Simulated scan of single mutants.
Amino acid sequence: MIYNKITENIIGAAIEVYKALGPGLLESAYQECLFYELKAMGYSVIKETTQPIVYKDITLDHGYRIDRLVENKIVAELKTVEKFTDVHTAQILTYMKLGNYPLGLLLNFHTKLLKNGIKRFINNPQ
């Protein structure tokens, strides 16, 4: 599946950023550097794209902002937190559901090893 290769490359780019910067910076620094790395790989990446909320017959345009959307298919949410919480999981799953995106990555740059701060999610629409 092509999405698996893209997620591998996103994780590889995140590791590259983490190796260069280490933990302890603001989330926005990692967001910009990951954006740079993914663009250098030739991917289409959208920063802080809004995700409107559709409720019955209305659309709320002031929805949420997805940190990075790669190839218009994969949600990449970056965090700098002690540990992931249920709220972080709910956030990425909701973004994926609202946008009908097939995959999502939750990346926490506030870890000793970045591999311990990566969660991958699959959207299985009913």
Rank of each mutant, 00 (worst) to 15 (best):
F35E: 01
R65S: 05
G12E: 00
P52T: 02
A29G: 04
K97Q: 12
E27F: 06
D86W: 09
K119S: 11
H62C: 09
V54F: 07
N116L: 00
Y101A: 03
T59E: 05
K83A: 11
K112T: 12
Q31N: 11
I74K: 06
N100P: 01
I15P: 02
R120S: 05
I11L: 07
L69P: 00
E82W: 04
E82M: 07
F35T: 04
I11V: 14
I66R: 02
F35A: 06
K79S: 08
K115G: 01
L103E: 10
A20E: 15
Y101E: 02
V17D: 00
N108K: 06
Q126K: 13
T59A: 03
P23S: 14
T49I: 09
T7C: 14
N9A: 13
L93H: 10
N9H: 11
T85K: 13
K97F: 07
G42S: 10
L60Y: 09
A90G: 11
N116I: 01
M96Q: 05
L106A: 03
K112L: 09
L21D: 05
A14T: 02
C33R: 13
P125F: 10
L105Y: 05
L106Q: 01
V70P: 00
T94A: 09
L98S: 13
S44P: 00
E16F: 07
T80L: 08
K56H: 11
Y95H: 08
A40Y: 05
T49H: 12
F84Q: 14
G99S: 08
T80D: 04
V87Q: 11
I11H: 04
V45A: 01
N123M: 06
T59V: 09
Y101N: 04
T94C: 08
P102D: 08
K112F: 03
A29F: 15
L69H: 02
Y36A: 10
G104A: 09
I122E: 14
E32V: 10
E8K: 15
Y18E: 03
L113D: 15
L60C: 02
P52I: 04
E16D: 12
M41K: 15
H110W: 07
K115M: 06
L78Y: 06
I46Q: 13
G99C: 04
C33L: 14
G22S: 12
N123V: 04
F84E: 06
I122R: 12
Y43G: 00
Q51V: 12
C33S: 15
N100R: 15
K115C: 03
L105C: 07
P52C: 03
F84W: 13
I6P: 07
V75T: 05
I6L: 10
T59N: 02
L25P: 00
E32M: 14
L38H: 05
L103T: 06
I118V: 14
P102F: 10
Y36T: 12
L107R: 08
V45W: 00
L105V: 06
E27Y: 08
E82R: 14
N4F: 11
A90V: 02
L103K: 15
E77C: 07
